[in-house]
Amino acid sequence: MDKKIEHLGQLSGKTLLFGGVYSNLQALEALKQVAEAENISPENCICTGDIVGYCAQPEETVQLFKIWNPRSIAGNVEIQLSEGAQDCGCDFKKGSRCDGFSQQWYPYAQSLLSQDSLAFIKQLPDHYTFNYADKKVMVVHGSYFNTSEFIFKSTPWETKAINFKVDQSDVIIAGHCGLPFNDAQNNKLWLNPGVIGMPANDGNQTVWYAILNDLNGKLEYKHHSLNYNYRLTNTLMQNGLLPEEYARTIVTGIWDNTEILPAVESGLQGFGINL
């Protein structure tokens, strides 16, 4: 299948980056307020996908996303929903706890999305490219080659490097893995702003996003944590239809398991995020 790549041209000024909203309406509301307080226009707000996910308000989240109107590429969840698939396409190991949980939250989300929301999801591109501070930037979900590929800070650079060659990019902005990080090598930058729908397995209820800046004529970036009404999110998730373990993670900041994590990231569970 041919990829849908949208070229945004030249962007400048503060640019807000985030991913993994995961049907967390309260986190999206809080991030929208950050963008407005920072005077960042919706055109300069970019999501790496998975607007829909683990939390309790998929329809409300998509509708607020439409109202705010930031840019977003399709995550694996959007792709699967668009195709009417029966699973989330997250590339969880079959029979794993994550796979079992997905058999609860994915059909829940699928059952609640309106035709209007599905139509919105279906038109999302696979990738964005744009120029920023004399750098060529590409936005991917997992990787260019595999929407569901988990790429972490500890992932070998060789695995990341092949993505830059596709479009001769200098910067790749990515999502999917759920953890914020940056990895700069050979004058290239792999930047994952993190997700706002779930904590980063760091023992904190806060979630993560990043802001690009070109104030000095050079591309600069900074990771930020986000406070939101996590108690309401937790309460709404305790509806008997969603995994209780995910509702607990919203409060504890600790993932139920580390099945998807490499040894390095798994060993950092609960120790906070060092950026």
Rank of each mutant, 00 (worst) to 15 (best):
residue 35 A to V: 05
residue 74 A to G: 10
residue 9 G to E: 05
residue 44 N to C: 11
residue 172 I to Y: 02
residue 177 C to E: 07
residue 92 F to H: 15
residue 208 W to Y: 13
residue 119 A to E: 10
residue 164 F to N: 10
residue 173 I to L: 15
residue 173 I to W: 05
residue 189 L to H: 06
residue 119 A to H: 11
residue 237 M to N: 15
residue 66 K to F: 00
residue 213 N to P: 00
residue 171 V to K: 01
residue 91 D to H: 13
residue 233 T to L: 09
residue 27 A to I: 06
residue 27 A to S: 14
residue 125 P to G: 14
residue 221 Y to E: 05
residue 70 P to Q: 05
residue 124 L to S: 10
residue 177 C to S: 14
residue 81 L to G: 03
residue 55 C to Y: 00
residue 6 E to A: 10
residue 141 H to Q: 10
residue 50 D to S: 03
residue 100 G to F: 06
residue 48 T to Q: 13
residue 213 N to K: 08
residue 215 L to K: 07
residue 38 E to H: 10
residue 205 Q to V: 09
residue 139 V to G: 03
residue 2 D to Q: 14
residue 119 A to N: 14
residue 151 I to F: 02
residue 216 N to E: 11
residue 117 S to D: 01
residue 188 K to C: 12
residue 75 G to A: 03
residue 141 H to K: 05
residue 80 Q to E: 06
residue 59 E to M: 05
residue 29 E to F: 04
residue 49 G to P: 06
residue 83 E to A: 15
residue 5 I to Y: 04
residue 229 N to M: 10
residue 17 L to T: 08
residue 3 K to P: 02
residue 47 C to W: 00
residue 132 Y to T: 05
residue 155 T to R: 01
residue 230 Y to K: 13
residue 65 F to T: 04
residue 176 H to R: 11
residue 124 L to H: 05
residue 24 N to M: 12
residue 225 S to A: 12
residue 152 F to K: 08
residue 241 L to H: 15
residue 60 E to Y: 00
residue 230 Y to W: 13
residue 151 I to P: 01
residue 184 A to Y: 02
residue 159 T to A: 12
residue 264 V to S: 12
residue 41 S to R: 09
residue 178 G to C: 06
residue 8 L to Y: 02
residue 52 V to N: 01
residue 236 L to H: 11
residue 102 S to V: 02
residue 26 Q to R: 12
residue 184 A to S: 10
residue 87 D to C: 12
residue 39 N to W: 03
residue 50 D to C: 09
residue 160 K to R: 12
residue 29 E to A: 14
residue 114 S to C: 08
residue 215 L to A: 14
residue 28 L to P: 11
residue 16 L to G: 10
residue 132 Y to H: 04
residue 183 D to F: 06
residue 95 G to D: 04
residue 3 K to D: 11
residue 17 L to I: 08
residue 106 Y to P: 08
residue 123 Q to T: 14
residue 155 T to V: 03
residue 173 I to N: 11
residue 207 V to L: 05
residue 11 L to T: 03
residue 212 L to V: 06
residue 242 L to Y: 05
residue 221 Y to Q: 03
residue 91 D to C: 12
residue 209 Y to K: 05
residue 207 V to W: 00
residue 10 Q to I: 02
residue 197 G to R: 02
residue 88 C to N: 14
residue 21 V to L: 11
residue 69 N to G: 07
residue 130 F to V: 09
residue 131 N to A: 07
residue 145 F to V: 04
residue 260 I to L: 12
residue 190 W to M: 15
residue 96 S to F: 09
residue 269 Q to F: 02
residue 49 G to L: 02
residue 87 D to K: 09
residue 262 P to M: 03
residue 271 F to Q: 15
residue 258 T to I: 14
residue 23 S to Y: 01
residue 174 A to D: 06
residue 112 L to I: 04
residue 166 V to W: 00
residue 77 V to M: 01
residue 15 T to Y: 02
residue 103 Q to R: 15
residue 176 H to C: 08
residue 86 Q to I: 06
residue 62 V to A: 04
residue 28 L to K: 12
residue 221 Y to P: 04
residue 179 L to Q: 04
residue 97 R to I: 14
residue 84 G to E: 01
residue 64 L to H: 03
residue 65 F to P: 04
residue 45 C to A: 15
residue 156 P to Q: 09
residue 33 Q to H: 13
residue 217 G to Y: 00
residue 135 K to S: 06
residue 80 Q to R: 13
